Every structure is written in structure tokens, then in C-alpha cells.
Amino acid sequence: MSDSELAGRTALVTGAASGIGAAIARRFRTAGARVAGLDLQPASDADEALVADLRSDADVAEAVARLGGIDILVHAAAISVHGGVIDTDTAAWADIYDVNVIGAVRLLRQAVPAMRARGGGSILLLSSINADFATPTLAAYAASKAAIESLTRTAALEFAPDGIRINAIAPASVDTPLLRDSFDRAEDPQAARAANILRHPLGRLGTPEDVAELALFLASDRASWITGAIHPLDGGASVTRR
């Protein structure tokens, strides 16, 4: 692997102001890419900070147009609320789908035509281990991530003739501000963190950098024969959901 393997390529990373998105933006830059970070607030780890709302067709179209073509697209932005199927209100369900799923579609609609014109590209969507397991405390979020995985497979088939690859990464618990906030809501945050770690056979939480390394591989030419796949990144948690 070369630290210049993405040289000459332009990458758009959503959710780049913090957490996983920020780590991916940093890693892609060290690999030579020109990185645009799209978020609701400026991303400090990007070459260009794009402030936009993924709920808005116009915002997404304007942001992508400013870049003059994209070689790599990463949709890491996501929102969630704590709640079950019927105690999560309708507006929250709709908002989560608007950002997590329809936001991905808005990005694809704007990015794919330019990728076709450039002869190909690589797209990564962030899913979650929760897409495959019953998750009563995150019902809307988990359902949105299951939709992302279905979207990944369908889009891979549609875009393959154009040389455009699309894959998804499905992490388990990654040590981000969002996860730490969930621990802080518990009666005993330290006990909640320890219990979560025990769900991962490798004995630790994931890091944003773990996700960024897999993202770099999947975005690079080393993964040129991989598309339509959902890649677990879970410390063994999906082997035995405990």
C-alpha cells in the first residue's frame, strides 16, 4: 500500500466534522486525495469544508457541483434517536430516513452522472451491525441502516456497467461522541461502557481509525473487484451477539 494511492482523486465525505467521517477524511488526505467534507458545520480535517443539509435537494446539488466531479463518495453522516418501534414518533422516523437513506440517494443522484463521465468511481455507505439484529432501543436507526444495505446491493448492480463500485461498511460499537453520549444517559456510564465492550470478542470498542482503514481499502484500486458487499467491522460481535 502506498500513502499516495488516492493521489489525483477527489473524495466527498459526509459527516466529516466529527467521528467516523472525520477519521475517513483525515485518512484519505494522507493517502493523497483532495477531500471535501460535507456536514452541518465546517469540517476541520478536509481540504474544503462544505456546509450543507442532507435533507435538502438544493444543498446537496450545490455542494457536489462546487467540486467539479467526484471520484470517491463516502456517506458517513447519520442521525438517530433512542426509542422503540411505536414510541419513536412519526416525525423522528421520517427525519432519520431523510438524512440516512434519502440523503444517500440525493448524493448518488448528484455524484453518479459525473462518475459515469469520468469512467468510474467508488462509493461507500456506512451501515451498522444494527441492520442485522433486533434493536428495540434504536428501531428507526436500525431500520434505516437495513435500507442502506439494500440500497447498496441494488445500486451496485445498476452502476457496475459504468465502472462504479458501491460497498457498505457495517461497524459495531465505535468510540465516537455519539456512542459516548449513549453511555452518559445510563445510570452508571462506566458500567454501560464496560458491558458494551463485553459484546465484542476482541475486547475493545472500535475506533474511527479502524473504520477509516477499511474505507481506504474499499475506495482504492486494491478493491477493484469488490462491489455490492456489506463489510462487517465489529470486533467479532456479529459472531455471537451477546
Rank of each mutant, 00 (worst) to 15 (best):
Q41A: 15
D53Q: 09
S144C: 10
G83S: 12
P136I: 15
I123G: 05
L40F: 08
L125E: 03
G69V: 01
D87K: 01
Y141D: 12
D47G: 12
Q41R: 15
D59A: 07
A63M: 13
G68I: 11
S80L: 15
I72W: 02
L54F: 01
Y97C: 03
L124F: 06
G37S: 12
L38T: 11
R106N: 00
A104W: 03
T135Q: 13
A111F: 06
L107I: 05
T137L: 08
L73S: 06
I70F: 09
R116A: 13
V60D: 08
D45L: 14
S44L: 12
V64L: 05
W93P: 00
V81G: 06
Q110R: 09
L38D: 15
S128I: 02
A77W: 00
G119D: 08
G121I: 05
H75R: 02
I123R: 07
R55F: 05
D71H: 14
A65F: 09
P136W: 15
S127M: 02
S144F: 01
V64S: 04
G37D: 10
A58R: 14
D47H: 14
A111T: 15
E48A: 06
A63C: 13
A94E: 09
A76G: 11
H82G: 00
R55A: 14
A117P: 04
P136D: 13
L50K: 09
G119F: 12
D57M: 04
A92N: 04
A61W: 09
T90E: 07
G121E: 05
L54K: 09
Q41E: 15
T88R: 00
A63Y: 13
G83W: 04
D95V: 00
R55S: 13
I123N: 02
T135Y: 03
D98S: 06
L138W: 08
A139Q: 13
D53F: 11
I79D: 04
I129P: 01
R66E: 13
L50S: 08
A77C: 10
I96E: 08
A65N: 08
T137K: 12
A104E: 02
I96V: 14
I86G: 02
V60Q: 09
M115W: 00
P113D: 07
D89A: 06
E48C: 04
A140K: 08
Y97Q: 07
T135D: 14
A43D: 11
D89V: 09
I70V: 15
V81N: 04
T135G: 01
D89E: 12
L108P: 00
L50A: 07
V99K: 07
V101H: 06
F133V: 15
S144H: 01
L138N: 13
S127Q: 07
A43I: 13
I123A: 02
V112K: 02
V51P: 06
G120E: 12
D89R: 05
I86C: 08
A139M: 12
Y97N: 06
E48N: 01
H75I: 10
I70R: 06
S122Y: 07
R116I: 14
A134C: 08
A77N: 11
A77T: 03
A76N: 11
G68E: 07
T88F: 03
A104G: 11
A117W: 08
L50W: 11
Y97I: 03
A52P: 04
S128M: 05
I102F: 07
L138H: 14
D132L: 05
T135R: 05
D87Q: 06
G37L: 07
A91H: 05
L108Q: 03
